[in-house]
C-alpha cells in the first residue's frame, strides 16, 4: 500500500485543562475520501487545525506527507488545501483577486496565479462574478469560492471542515457535485461533518468522533453492518405516549431507542415488524420503515443524536 498522507497516533489537543482531542489514531491514504463524523464539540475542527499545521499538537504523534508539522509546517502547508469551518475570504478584495493573492501566498508567479484563478472560477461556477465583492455572494457561492481558493496550489490533500453546514439543500448538492469531481480526479479529501448523509455520500472511510475520542472506524457500510441492524422501523405515537408504547413493542426488535418524538425499532426485516405492530392494534400516528444510516450508528455508539 502507498505511504499514508496523514498519520496520527495518540494525537491530543488540550486548551488549558480542557482536553478537546483525547488521543486519536488516524491514517489517511492517497486518493481516499476520509471523514470525521461527529456532533458539535467533538473535536473535529481542533483535529483539522492540527492536520492543517495552524495549531500545534499538545501530545502524540502526527505526520503529514511524511513530515512533522512542528518542524516543517510551512512546507506541509504548501501542499495542502484548506477549507475552514468559518468563511475566511478576503472581504476587501474582489472574487478574482481573492484567488490571485492566495496563489501569491503560495509563491506562484503572477502569470500562473492568474491562469489558475480563471480555471478555478470556472470550476466553482463563478466566472460571471469575477469582479464582484465577496460580500455580495450567497452562502453557497462563498463556500465554492473557498474551495476554489483551497485548490490554487494544486494540493495533494484537501481539508474540508464542515463544507456544507448552513447551506440550503440545493446549494449542498451543487457543492457535493464539485467535491465528487475532485475525488474522481484523485484528490485526497479529508472532511468533517455532522450530517450523516454527507458522510455517506462523500466518504470512502470515516471515523465516528465524540467528546474528543474515536468511537468507531470503517466504511459507511461496514459501520452500519457492525453497529446497527439492516432496517429500522420508526414509530411516532402521540406526544408523551412514546415511553409507554415502547414497552409494548420492545420484544419485536433486536434493539430499541426511545427518542423524545419517536420510537426506533432495529430489526433485519422492518416490514415484518411494522406488520406485527399493526396486528397488535397499537395504532402509531406514523410508521416508517427505512434502511439503517450512520445516524443510527452514532445513536448506538453514543446514546445521542448527531444534530440536535
Amino acid at each position: 500500500m502507498a505511504d499514508p498522507l496523514i498519520e496520527a497516533r495518540a494525537l491530543t489537543k488540550r486548551f488549558g485543562d480542557f482536553v478537546a482531542v483525547a488521543g486519536i489514531d488516524v491514517t489517511v491514504r492517497p486518493g481516499e475520501a476520509f471523514g470525521f463524523l461527529g456532533p458539535n464539540g467533538a473535536g473535529k475542527s481542533s483535529t483539522m487545525r492540527m492536520i492543517g499545521c495552524t495549531s500545534p499538537r499538545s501530545g502524540g504523534e502526527l505526520r503529514i506527507l511524511g513530515l512533522d508539522p512542528d518542524t516543517h509546517g510551512a512546507q506541509i502547508r504548501s501542499r495542502l488545501g484548506v477549507v475552514p469551518q468559518d468563511d475566511t475570504l478576503d472581504n476587501e478584495l474582489t472574487v478574482f483577486d481573492n484567488l490571485l493573492i492566495y496563489g501569491r501566498y503560495f509563491d506562484l508567479s503572477r502569470k500562473v496565479a492568474r491562469q489558475r484563478a480563471e480555471e478555478l472560477l470556472d470550476f466553482a461556477q463563478l466566472s460571471d462574478r469575477a469582479k464582484a465583492r465577496v460580500q455580495t455572494l450567497s452562502g453557497g457561492m462563498k463556500r465554492r469560492l473557498t474551495i476554489a481558493r483551497a485548490l490554487i496550489n494544486e494540493p495533494q490533500v484537501l481539508l474540508l471542515d464542515e463544507p456544507t453546514t448552513g447551506l440550503d439543500p440545493q446549494a449542498r448538492h451543487v457543492l457535493w457535485d464539485r467535491l465528487y469531481r475532485l475525488k474522481q480526479q484523485g484528490v485526497t479529501l479529508v472532511l468533517t461533518t455532522h450530517y450523516m448523509d454527507e458522510a455517506e455520500q462523500l466518504c470512502d472511510r470515516l471515523v465516528v468522533m465524540d467528546k474528543g475520542r474515536i468511537a468507531a472506524e470503517g466504511t459507511p457500510l461496514q459501520l452500519i453492518a457492525e453497529h446497527s441492524s439492516r432496517e429500522v422501523v420508526e414509530l411516532r405515537f402521540a406526544p408523551d405516549r412514546n415511553e409507554v408504547m415502547a414497552d409494548k413493542v420492545a420484544d419485536l426488535a433486536e434493539r430499541i431507542e426511545v427518542l423524545p418524538d419517536r420510537v426506533l425499532l432495529y430489526a433485519d426485516d422492518g416490514d415484518a415488524v411494522a406488520e406485527t405492530v399493526s396486528q397488535r392494534g397499537l395504532r402509531p400516528e406514523t410508521v416508517l420503515v427505512r434502511r439503517s444510516t450512520l445516524e443510527d450508528v452514532f445513536l448506538r455508539l453514543t446514546g445521542r443524536t448527531l444534530v440536535d
Binding site: R77, L80, P84, D86, D90, N91, E92
Partner: peptide, 14 residues
C-alpha cells in the same frame, strides 16, 4: 472580523 490572517496562515506564510 474577517479572519483574514487565519486564511493567510493556511498557506506557507507564517
Amino acid at each position: 472580523h474577517d479572519k483574514l490572517y487565519d486564511a493567510v496562515l493556511a498557506t506557507p506564510m507564517r
